[in-house]
Simulated assay, not measured.
Amino acid sequence: MTHILLVEDEVKLARFVELELNYEGYQVSVAYDGLTALMAARELHLDLVILDWMLPGLSGLEICRRLRSIVDKVPIILLTVKDEVSDRIVGLDAGADDYLVKPFSVDELLARVATRLRKSQQADVAEVLEFEDLSLNRRTRQVYRDQRLIELTGKEFDLLEYLLTHPRQIITCDRILEEVWGYDFMSDANIIEAYIYYLRLKLEANNEKCLIQTVNGVGYTLRD
């Protein structure tokens, strides 16, 4: 049975979400603070984590970062009242795979859960992706440009990984949002532009040629 860890300090909301997840057939463990969540992550075999940003003691962001060292491949959905693009970038860079703003529809949460679980189960088995002098190792999460190691944030890595799985294809912004962020982010589509900018800065830091090309009015492509 799919096992989900729900980390939420609002007891009534936690109980409501737990019951809805149970009804969908998921096994749910609930933690009301960050330290309990970290202990559960170490002891349980988890398939997904739903994590509130605002927690007593350790913040949800710090918990997210620590969870990533324990359950590196497990999807994390972050719940928060923060809705600015900058906040979303911070949350995603902390290691979250998805982001849901409170108050939210339980149907939307269930859809996000199903999407993230499906993507996790369908992950490509290829360990190393390469294009020109660029290589990405999915297991070690290391990226090299020729012999130069490039340090990327979690979401920068995810975006580059997606581009590397579709070389020379023109990928629309809508498709990138759906596949990398996993939900409709149309009102904040400029988040892709921001991440592409960050990626280019790092990939071309030594004046290497540009590999990520902009297709005006459409999206992006990885090509020489």
Rank of each mutant, 00 (worst) to 15 (best):
T2M: 11
H3Y: 08
V7N: 00
D9R: 01
E10K: 13
L13V: 13
A14S: 11
A14R: 00
V17N: 10
E18Y: 05
E18K: 15
E20C: 09
E20L: 07
N22W: 04
Y23S: 12
G25D: 06
V28Y: 02
V28C: 00
V30L: 06
D33A: 10
L35A: 08
A37G: 01
M39Q: 12
A41Q: 01
L46I: 00
D47E: 11
V49P: 01
L51S: 07
W53R: 10
L55K: 12
L61N: 05
E62V: 00
E62W: 01
R66F: 00
R66Y: 01
I70L: 13
V71K: 14
D72C: 10
V74Q: 04
V74S: 04
P75G: 03
I76T: 01
T80C: 03
T80I: 07
V81K: 12
V81M: 11
K82L: 12
D83W: 08
D87W: 04
I89C: 05
G91E: 03
L92D: 04
L92H: 11
L92F: 15
L92R: 11
L92V: 11
D93F: 04
A94L: 01
G95H: 00
Y99I: 04
Y99H: 01
Y99T: 02
V101I: 15
K102Y: 05
F104S: 08
S105T: 09
E108C: 07
L109S: 01
L109D: 00
A114Y: 06
L117C: 03
K119N: 07
S120K: 14
Q121M: 11
A123W: 02
D124R: 14
D124P: 08
V128S: 02
V128Q: 03
L129H: 07
L129F: 10
E130W: 07
D133L: 03
L136F: 05
L136N: 07
R139I: 12
R139P: 02
R139D: 09
Q142A: 12
Y144S: 01
R145V: 15
Q147A: 11
T153I: 09
G154E: 13
K155M: 13
E156D: 04
L159C: 05
L164Y: 02
L164T: 09
T165R: 14
T165F: 08
I170Q: 12
I171W: 03
I171R: 03
T172C: 04
T172H: 06
Y183H: 14
F185D: 13
I191T: 08
I191H: 02
A194K: 13
A194R: 13
Y195V: 13
I196G: 06
I196C: 08
Y197H: 15
Y198A: 13
A205I: 06
N206P: 08
N206Y: 12
K209D: 13
I212K: 04
Q213A: 08
V215A: 09
N216D: 05
V218A: 08
V218E: 07
V218F: 09
G219E: 06
R223D: 09
R223T: 15
D224V: 09
D224A: 09
